[in-house]
Amino acid sequence: MFDPEEFIEKQTEDLAAEVDGKAIIGVSGGVDSMVAAILMDRAIGKRLFAVYVNNGFMRKNEDAEVAKAFDATGVRYRIVDAGEEFFDSLKGIIDPEEKRKIIGSKFIEVFEREAIDWGAVYLVQGTIAPDWIESGGQLRDTIKSHHNVGGLPSSMKLKLVEPLRDLYKDEVRKVARSLGISVSERQPFPGPALAIRILGEVTPARVEVVREACAIAEEEIEKAAESGKMDVPWQYFAVLLPLKSVGVQGDVRAYGNTVAVRAVESVDGMTANYMRIPHDVLETISVRITNEIKSVNRVVYDITHKPPATIEWE
């Protein structure tokens, strides 16, 4: 059985032996990169510098939450606002694989700049097993290129360190609890962020729609879970679809956007079932999204397992 204490001890030793210079770590505020950061902090201490990139597609209040989580750890970090760069690079892009690869290489561009500033030769990432499994290679088919694996350009000069490569999310959470990390139970959030919850082109206006929809879905589901109506799902969010449909809003014909809501249960992200969340919770989410977001007049709930679907839509 996986023993988090043993893992922490062994990894800290191995990392201290492997990483003999300065390192930067790419962090998102999620549990994987946070665990990797704490292990690295234990292994190389002040030679570590954490970089959080706001790519313009983050959720509501994400910067503040990441700052709060990092302030509590004592790890040195910087928040880089790179929104404009990322938006520019995605202009006209609708293919999900192309999107993921562009975002992956943009991240590396930012990390390489920061590495020069810090004098780092190592890049640490919180890559976990499903990231490299789904990114494919050799015999394995590419399901989706995770930004931290399939998005890495071959020209990258930094040496890659990935201490969590063989772990799944449930194991990472065990390590996080053992390390006393505050974000240990935070729901998974993909590196390309809201960009892959927008099917079709990523524009600031569409990001605004999906950001608001995600916030409403998260808020209502968390509220229902707190009041004991349901368990907290493994992952729960909203997706903006690239199609419009007819509606009627205030006695006026509407031709508006469709938002899909998704909530799944899983242990490790490799298989998942759609969650049977109570209808009154779905109703509240639907009413709030269509009332509070002007351009949306239809909400659907995704009832597909993984497989055949994946958890995220792109």
Binding site: A129, I133, L139, R140, D141, I143, D166
Partner: peptide, 13 residues
């Protein structure tokens, strides 16, 4: 034996 499955690593686990 790795034949390239999505769940090969799960078998190991």
């Amino acid at each position: 034996i790795d034949n390239g499955g999505q769940w090969t690593h799960r078998e190991w686990r």
